[in-house]
């Protein structure tokens, strides 16, 4: 039993990653990753919302009538996102400005609705909480990988600090401007999925 509970935390990190395997929550994963810092903040925000919405709805699961469950879920999630949004505005205002509408879009992030529907409504609170954290971190991990590649090759920096030395630029190295545009993010996700599926053969489509 202990082992199984633990698995609901570790499984979504790689083997059953919500972004790479279930193709959920892509919208925000791509838009906020031009730099590493907003990507990290977004990953943490989604982890918090996913964990608490799973916990709350798992506690409420026996009291919600089946027919109106979607509205109840959306209201709980929207309330949590409103709290996260206000916390971000209070403590990391510049990042909150950069994320703009994408914080609000956590509400419609399919990972959160998906985990509530698929897991929290049929499981006890503790495994649900761990499942929420695991899925949020799995999402965050992909965001950080994409943010790392895009910021390093697009700006030559990480977390805003210059990484690629000045002498490279003097020798003729140029930042890849395309990395900062939307299409680059899509292509990077495509390549990550390719690598992930090549190493996990059972996920491949016939």
């Amino acid at each position: 039993m202990k082992n199984k509970t633990f698995q609901s935390l570790t499984n979504p990190l790689a083997k059953n990653n919500p972004v790479l395997v279930q193709i959920l929550g892509i919208c925000s994963a791509l838009a906020v990753t031009t730099q590493l810092k907003p990507a990290l903040v977004m990953g943490l925000s989604v982890t918090a919302v996913c964990a608490f919405s799973n916990l709350v709805l798992s506690l409420l699961r026996n009291g919600i009538p089946d027919r109106i469950r979607i509205i109840v879920q959306l209201v709980v999630i929207a309330a949590l996102v409103t709290i996260v949004n206000d916390i971000l505005k209070a403590y990391v205002y510049d990042v909150s400005k950069q994320l703009s509408v994408y914080v609000g879009l956590i509400i419609t992030n399919c990972i959160i609705m998906g985990r509530v529907e698929a897991f929290a409504l049929s499981n006890k609170p503790l495994p649900s909480l761990l499942d929420g954290i695991g899925n949020g971190l799995g999402y965050g991990a992909v965001l950080v990988i994409i943010g790392f590649v895009r910021e390093l090759f697009g700006n030559g920096s990480l977390f805003g600090y210059q990484i690629i030395p000045e002498c490279f630029y003097e020798a003729g190295y140029v930042n890849n401007g395309l990395m900062l545009f939307p299409p680059a993010a899509l292509i990077i996700v495509g390549i990550i999925i390719w690598v992930h599926r090549t190493t996990n053969k059972d996920l491949q489509e016939k």
Partner: peptide
């Protein structure tokens, strides 16, 4: 298509290329 790229992987790369066209 290469096996690992079938399905969503390729779909993302195509969307990226379409996005470049829309740029």
């Amino acid at each position: 298509v290469p096996k690992g790229l079938r399905g969503p992987g390729l779909a993302f790369i195509i969307t990226g290329l379409l996005g470049m066209a829309f740029m």
